[in-house]
Nucleic acid binder design. Sequence first.
DNA 1: CGACCGGTGGATAACGTTGTCCACCGCGCA
DNA 2: TGCGCGGTGGACAACGTTATCCACCGGTCG
Lengths: 326, 326
Amino acid sequence: MADVAREAGVSVATVSKVVNGRYGVSRATLEKVLGVIADLGYEASLGARSLRSLRTNVIGVLVAEFEPFSTELLKGVSDAIDSTGYELIAYSGRHHGETVGWERRSLVRLAGSVIDGAIVVTPTIVDAEIGGIPVVAVDPHTGPVDVPTVDADNYAGGVIATEYLLGLGHRRIAHLSGRPDLESARLRERGFREAMARAGVEVDERLVVVGGFRAESAEGPARELLSGPDRPTAVFAANDLSAIRTMEVARSLGLRIPEDLSIIGFDNVPESALATPPLTTIAQPLKAIGAAALQMLVTMLDGATPAPAHVRLPTTMVERASCRAL
Amino acid sequence: MADVAREAGVSVATVSKVVNGRYGVSRATLEKVLGVIADLGYEASLGARSLRSLRTNVIGVLVAEFEPFSTELLKGVSDAIDSTGYELIAYSGRHHGETVGWERRSLVRLAGSVIDGAIVVTPTIVDAEIGGIPVVAVDPHTGPVDVPTVDADNYAGGVIATEYLLGLGHRRIAHLSGRPDLESARLRERGFREAMARAGVEVDERLVVVGGFRAESAEGPARELLSGPDRPTAVFAANDLSAIRTMEVARSLGLRIPEDLSIIGFDNVPESALATPPLTTIAQPLKAIGAAALQMLVTMLDGATPAPAHVRLPTTMVERASCRAL
DNA sequence: CGACCGGTGGATAACGTTGTCCACCGCGCA
DNA sequence: TGCGCGGTGGACAACGTTATCCACCGGTCG
């Protein structure tokens, strides 16, 4: 900045004013300084700026890991950020095998020097303010908290999936549930039970088993479910990964899909469209979730309180070929 | 830091020494200070630190966009970084529709205040040093440059794929090539031609068409290739996306795979395993590439020159079910 | 017994920016 | 003509950290 000032024949203070679009500088000086900045390719030091002004115009997205879910979300945030004037960095905090407290530590480190606010996409929840910066949580897995949140309507998704199967005439419907410690999984199961109850169909508890959210963890329970004496005609799996694995298990048991068994998943991951047969599933509007979270965070950065503090976006069904009418 | 110093009854200078593991602090003071730091949850301000010491211990990965390719690579870097003592941030630079120069601008902004070095995963290449920080390029698309680079052996991959098809007895082999402006695509085609020449099989130029790297761009050329009078018995597609679309086109033309047409792809994207039939393809060691790039960058950060300056990792074939012997 | 030396901790000056004053200059109005 | 005022630019002190000194203290060696 000193270089720019010298080259333009003004003081650093004036350059600072120009850079920050402050009032009190004549048009002639403004253009002169702007010209020099362009010539020299000057970029303000983020560190020094934040040190002084406590603002960096950068927001961070903290993810547990870079996988399809968080990546798609990131894309949503990335698309939406252009209009806000903020920059975006993504940050994966899990390190050194520490499993607890890393979110907080990661956030604190960047807060107050690199980022003005954060969107956290992690299972364990944090406070509404960490290191003095506002935080929005996406898909919080641990129930109601005081942090502003954005998530998909997992409950409604469970209802939609179940009602779809009921509408196709199925009555013996199994639910391969997700990780019981995660709120999203519990909500999907609640939706399932609610839809069954509303339709007056009793849930056979032997048909509700925990499958987790990974293919491997679902394999055993799926096999158990399908090799019993009185097997279901349809399965609502808590996510696509377990649904796809369930299809494979079914095939290995000689069951055809959807002729002998209907399966519906949750999440609409890219693979589900390519599975054999293509998987009918419930889609989460990941990009919209990312965009909404960003919007809330920007509101908070402007000093306002986002209303509502908890946004729940609708889930929709993607009908493919893994279910059939009974 | 002042708080910590007061609480521990020492000066800020001493706290700084403790934080940085500098010599000249007694064990007693060390532990005292460490204890207070833990109590207060103190985290050094990255901005201030870099302002003074020109080091942040953070390296950045600059990607054009968050898609499967860069995400997998990111995971490789992320896995490898634990042992280095550096932190990782990812950064997507494309903004506001600017298509040129954004890499440089993004890098300069973060350089010198946030990151100590960068791994760039972008098509257009940059200088070896930007804003004074070292840079490693991954999969540079524009041929030899003076930046240290890491990429997969696209040429050998082309050879392997073609020789595989030749070994299955195919002679009329088509190549659906990638974006001609990208070095990786040209190398894959070179590998194809070399393998054909070595086997003494002449390339029918009508069977070499540009398909690009996206499913949509490949559809037309694929259809043209397969509906001609003297259609090929095998297709080597420049990437999996175009290969999968080619399979769909083939099916729509009444061709069975692999009975009537063998297809091999490139990249081994997750979808390829789930395609119908599962796609035989050439895999790039994405995680290894990320890890190698990180290793080179760390070497450069230590002041050394990485040797060799260009690392080329081997591609391997993943044999699935989309090819058969003639 | 005195000087030196290793070991320890502190004072202090940067690093590059921004916000707050303050000074100056020319013009209009009393 | 003198005073005030708006418009412009600059001086200067922070922000939180680190590197470079420098001071002190106890012990040891000559």
